[in-house]
Every structure is written in structure tokens, then in C-alpha cells.
Design a protein around this nucleic acid. Sequence first.
DNA 1: AGTGTATCCTGCAGGC
DNA 2: TGCCTGCAGGATACAC
Length: 275
Amino acid sequence: MPELPEAETLVRGLHPLLAGHRITRVRVHHADVLHVAPHRFRRQLAGRRITGVGRRGKKVVLSLDGGEARLVVSLGMTGRLVPRGFADTDPSRPTHPAVTLTLDEGRGLVFHDPRRFGSLELLTAGEWASRSRTMGPEPLARGWGWAALHAALSGSRTPVRNWLLDQRRVAGVGNIYASEACFRAGIHPARPAREVAPGEARRLHRVLRAVLREAIANRGTTLRDYRDAGGEPGENRALLRVYGRAGLPCPRCGSPIERLVLTNRSAFYCPRCQS
DNA sequence: AGTGTATCCTGCAGGC
DNA sequence: TGCCTGCAGGATACAC
């Protein structure tokens, strides 16, 4: 569910709620979101203080005291981080808890994930640094320019949409914003990456950043499950130009938007505006 | 190296 | 109402 803008919105909301609080109890309801045995996870996490909440790509990263550890949260398709305090009648309450953290001063955090494609990993500072190195650049970082994007694209024959989804190439882009960026750049999602000309790479770079920034400004896209730290859905869905809009008119030329399947995942595009 | 396929898992929408 | 199929913001392990 969550791509970079959703993770960023969530992190901004969680930081003030969690920073400075100590984890007093850890309950594991579904061990399959962990990569280690539950007893080990509980033992390593309990007693630590959360010092900050950040983001890398689409991952939410909780910094912990005691050796600069990191709790790295992959939200998968349906993962949510829900702060304690939702009434039973609240429609955004966590109905599928996988892990519950009890914090001091009455606070708490539930990792809710119906499909359980998400995961929680406790890493040392060194392990996190190496993991982060395997991920591509942050697309919104000032240092990431169009020339670097063009150079990286030129080394690959893979379809541009798939290229954008590869977290090792650029971090944080998922299926929604990959389609949206291709549309705004006028590039067919199946076009081989190396066939993107320099001028097109420049445009792709610009529109990808714009798409992500706008989505953050709209607090993310909610298709079904995504909620921010306050339990609120994002407002960006109405601004999507092609994603999920097969058969509807292209906002630019009026042609029906088409759906294409690339490596088992839908891509949406305008056959007239993108080539 | 790269591409397509299957897999993990649950829920929901739509057709009959 | 129920049963079936297909689809879903992700990531990975395979066989070609």
C-alpha cells in the first residue's frame, strides 16, 4: 500500500507521538512478519527508548537507544502503524494486529497488517547502514539529478515502469507513482529504460519528483487500507491521472486509459500520450 | 543480466 | 444468500 509519500506522511505524524518513549512490552500476534523467533525479537526490543522516527524509501525507520539500533518497518501492501488510543468503534482501529508495542506513559503502537506481507526487523546501526546502501537514491534528495537518472536508465533493457519499481535503482517508488510518472513524462511504461533519451530522462526526473511532492502535500493516496498516524486517509487519489483508471478518458487527450500487465502487476497509461 | 512466473496472505468487488 | 474469479500501494525466489 504505502509508497514514499504515504510513508513520509505516516512518519511525520508518528514522530511527535513516539519520540522519547520507552518500549515496555512487546506482543507478537503473527510471527510471520518477523525474521527472527518471537522470543528473541521481544527480548531485543523491550526496554529500549525510541529516539526518532524516520523514513528511507518506503520503509519507516524507528531509531532506538542502546547502540543506535533501528527498527525497520516494511509496510508491504496492507501494513499500518496505529498509535494507541483508538476506540473500538473507530473504523480505522487495528483489526489485524501482527505486533503490539506498549510504551511508557500510556502510549503504544500496533503494527496492523491483514495480508502480512509487511515485516519488522531490528538491526544494528551497521546492519542498517549496509541495508541502506543496497537501496537506490532518495528521489527527492537535492543531490539526485536528471543526469544520474539518465545514466542509470541507460544500463538497463527493463521496461521503464519496472525500472522505477526496483528499490535498488531508486528508493520509494511503487506501482501508483511509477504509472503516474510515466504518464506525465509521456513515456510508455513498457519502453526499455535504455531507450529513454536525455531530454525524456530530464522530464521523467522532474515529473517523478513533482508527483511525489504533490502526493505528500495531499497526505498520500488511499486506495483502501492506507491511513496516516491520525487514522485519516490520504487525499491524493482524486489527483491520479491514470492509475486505476482503465477505460476512463485520459485527462489530457480524452482517449481511454489502458491497463497493461508487466511482470504480474498492472500499469496504466494513455496509448496516445505515451510512446 | 533480464524477464516472466509463482508465492506469501486476506479481503473485497463483481458476475452468476 | 452463496460461490466463484480476479484483483490489490510489496518483495523475493525460481526457471528460463
